[in-house]
Write a protein that binds this DNA or RNA. Structure first.
Lengths: 152, 152
DNA sequence: CTGACTGCAAAATCTTTGCAAAGAC
DNA sequence: GTCTTTGCAAAGATTTTGCAGTCAG
C-alpha cells in the first residue's frame, strides 16, 4: 500500500494557499473531494468519488459536474493524477505520495512495487530533452511473477 | 520516428491467418484499417482513421462503427496498441514496430515518442532482481509539452 | 457587496449496439 | 446458401457547458 508522505493538514494547507493565490474560493465540496482522494488508497473514477461523498456526507449538496471541475483543478495543480485503465473513463489518485512503479503479474494479478533511482533520473533527463514539463510518470512491467513461475 | 521492423506483406499475411483460425472474414474495410495504421506513423483516434480512409479511398463504404470494431479486434490480436490519456478518446498505433515509450501532453493530448537504452536495460535488471519473467512494459511520462507551455 | 462556485439539466463527445442488407467463403 | 460483417441510426456512457441562485471573502 503506498504511503502518503505528506500529512493531510499540509495538503489542505497548500491547497488553500493555491486557491488564495489564484483568487479561487475554498468550498466544502472542494475540500471533501480532496479529502476522499487523500484518505482512500486506490484509484477512483469521478463517479466513484461522487458516490463516496454522497454516502459519507449525505448532508452536503454535490453535483457530478463539480467533481469533474474539481478534479481538473486538482490535476492541474499536481495534487492528484489521473490514469486511464484501458476501458472507458479516467481514474484519479492522490499524487503527492511516494512515487513507485509496478510489476504486474499476468497469472495471479499480483502487484509488486519498485522504485529505481536510475530510471527516475533518466525520465527527468528525457523530459528535459523534449522541453516537456513532467507532472507524472507511470511504468508498468507485465509478466509472470516468481511465485507463479514456481507453480509451472 | 519508429521503424516498422515487420513488412506489410507479413503483417497482412498474419492477419489473414488469424482471421481464418478464428473463422472471421477478410474484408476490404479490415484490410484498409490495418494498412492505414501500418503506413502512417503516429497515433490515431478512431475518427482520424475513419477520415483518412474516407479521403484516401472515397469509393469504399465505411462506417465509424466498423473502425471501432476492427480496432478492438486488432488490439486483442496484439497487432495494434492503444494509449489513452489526458484528452478524451483513445489513440491507436501499430504495435509490432520497435519498442518505444511515450510522452503524453495533458493539455493537447499530443504524444511524443522516445526510446532510451538505459531505461530498457534497467527494466530488465529490475525484472531479474524480482525473479519476474517480463513479457511487456509500458512507460508514460505525462506533463505539458513544449508547444502548450509556449501558449501559456 | 462582488465575483466565484454550485447544482441542474441540457448539450456535446465518444463508443457501442440492434438490425436488415451486403458480402466472404 | 450460410454465416459473418457492414452501415446506419439510435442508444449508451462519459464529460462539459450555460445559467440563475448561492456562498465565500
Amino acid at each position: 500500500m503506498p504511503q502518503n508522505i505528506v500529512s493531510y493538514a499540509d495538503v489542505l494547507n497548500d491547497f488553500k494557499k493555491l486557491l488564495k493565490v489564484n483568487k479561487l474560493k475554498y468550498t466544502k465540496q472542494r475540500e471533501l473531494i480532496l479529502e476522499i482522494i487523500y484518505n482512500n488508497d486506490g484509484h477512483f473514477t469521478p463517479e466513484d468519488i461522487y458516490n463516496l461523498i454522497k454516502k459519507s456526507y449525505p448532508e452536503v449538496k454535490l453535483g457530478i459536474a463539480t467533481v469533474y471541475r474539481t478534479l481538473t483543478l486538482l490535476e492541474e495543480s499536481n495534487i492528484v493524477s489521473s490514469i486511464s485503465f484501458g476501458a472507458q473513463g479516467k481514474k484519479y489518485e492522490f499524487g503527492l505520495g511516494e512515487h513507485h512503479d509496478h510489476l504486474v503479474c499476468l497469472k495471479c494479478g499480483g502487484i509488486e512495487e519498485f522504485f529505481d533511482e536510475i530510471i527516475e533520473q533518466r525520465q527527468e533527463d528525457i523530459a528535459k530533452e523534449h522541453n516537456f514539463r513532467m507532472s507524472n510518470h507511470i511504468m508498468k512491467i507485465t509478466g509472470i511473477c516468481s511465485v507463479c513461475q514456481a507453480k509451472e
